[in-house]
Design a protein around this nucleic acid. Structure first.
Lengths: 265, 265
DNA sequence: ACAAAAGTGTTTTCAATACACCCATGG
DNA sequence: CCATGGGTGTATTGAAAACACTTTTGT
């Protein structure tokens, strides 16, 4: 798995013009040029890329599938109900998988489709990305017993899980989106509990980017960005010595100006 | 229309957990927890947000619809064929609308869905964003006579076009994506012809961001970013005096490090 | 000669880095 | 009292902004 720089969504490769184009027909079905009268219909599903931090490593939730399937692991997800919105469906399925409702962050990632992605169930899949704090239980909910957090760094190693369909790419896109968004949004706090220390927040960046950040400079950077975090009180002393750290909550900022840029890439 | 800062995709508002959740059933259809046996199927369409620069203004291509419809303008687009990929469908429809094949930039923007977005044709729409140079004809292709470039700044003015369904939001998302990507990618060149001057490139930023950039500083910034542009020769003198400018082509860079940040926001 | 646009040089400003040092707590 | 982690101060580096100035063309 290879991450390209900076949230580059990736352009669509140019396609040769099709051999024939349908003639214009319009004005009777609310659609536009070239539409067939009865369009093909497909099933729409939602796939969830749930990311969290466990033991200083960025992890993604995968569901183990039973032996009839050659590929053992898949992203959590399921079909979109006919009467629900895409965002609503993602929220519902996130809740079903983790019990999470208000905490964290959930956003649409990208839609994957085409006849070749899953021969057994053709259709489109709308992927969503969620950033979660380390959950109390690994993954309560219907798929709980089958769910497991996998460090994303292990996904392309030989002893890592085999992923179904295009799920490796979806995970890669989600991880890269998360990494990029840490740069210019305050979303790192979505990986933390409601109250967190600046060291907690710094460890999010260090785990996601696999870098070491200078604590003094990180502190200055975060505190000098208005609305990134707001202070509360003090916390219990950590395991094995050290000065107690101040606690913070998420602020109201939606973007970081200037951003917190990754060195490399 | 209000643009929020920095490519913020926007989180999904938390939803209350549904009253009931289906019991687990798995292992026979390749899907996961909670899936119905026969999922609802819908039509999938592609909407195109085609952006270009005309007369120093950022413009979007809209299609005029005939009187039976209460709303006069819509984004170009149409249904996805059963045997084609989403990206392929977007390429095909881009070609059908503009004749453009290899030039410019085309990427998936976001998927919009749910039962409430278009009562007449429920389904999901996958929006694509294309950045194009100023085309020779306004818009050749099947919808050509109905097509018009609209400055995006005029879209929410009273004398601007009325847009169907959620198309105002799709355009807003596309414009914000384009504005954000100018910061950290070399995509500004996608708005230019194959060969362009640094002033051409600067005018892309000035039009998209509605700011004035200092030509000397802009020049230094672009030339100091490896792979942003590569020089070629010299150009004819412009209309009415002035030193001829050097011509450049797109370089091989896919990201800008460090980015070219917008001042405000 | 003059206007207009391209391009160069230089100063100032400000943020990011590196790193020395102090503070508070557990053992 | 010492190890550990939190927090402060400060010098250095580097990039961005501001702007004066030179170059090359058309009229």
């Amino acid at each position: 798995m290879r991450w390209d720089g900076h949230g580059q969504t990736g352009g669509v490769p140019p396609a040769s013009p099709p051999n024939q184009v349908r003639g214009p027909r319009d004005g009777d079905d609310g659609r536009r040029h070239g539409d067939p009268v009865t369009p093909p219909v497909v099933a729409v599903s939602v796939d969830l890329v749930l990311l969290t931090l466990r033991g200083g490593r960025l992890c993604v939730l995968l569901i183990r599938r039973d032996p009839p399937f050659d590929v053992a692991w898949a992203l959590p997800g399921g079909f979109v109900d006919g009467d629900e919105d895409l965002d609503t469906s993602a929220s519902r399925q996130l809740w079903a998988e983790t019990g999470v409702t208000t905490t964290g962050h959930l956003e649409q990632l990208r839609t994957y489709g085409g006849p070749h992605r899953d021969p057994r169930a053709p259709g489109v899949s709308v992927a969503y990305l969620a950033l979660l704090p380390n959950l109390p239980q690994p993954a309560p909910g219907g798929d709980g017993p089958r769910a497991r957090w996998w460090p994303v760094a292990d996904l392309d190693s030989p002893d890592g899980p085999a992923l179904a369909f295009d799920h490796p790419r979806i995970v890669a896109d989600g991880v890269e989106r998360a990494r990029a968004k840490l740069e210019y949004t305050p979303l790192a706090a979505a990986f933390c509990e409601d109250q967190f220390t600046l060291a907690d927040l710094r460890r999010v960046y260090e785990a996601a980017w696999d870098v070491a950040l200078d604590p003094p400079n990180f502190r200055r950077k975060v505190l000098s960005t208005p609305g990134f975090v707001v202070p509360v009180g003090r916390r219990t002393s950590p395991r094995g010595g050290g000065r107690p750290a101040e606690l913070y909550r998420r602020g109201s900022a939606t973007a970081l100006h200037p951003p917190l840029l990754r060195r490399s890439v």
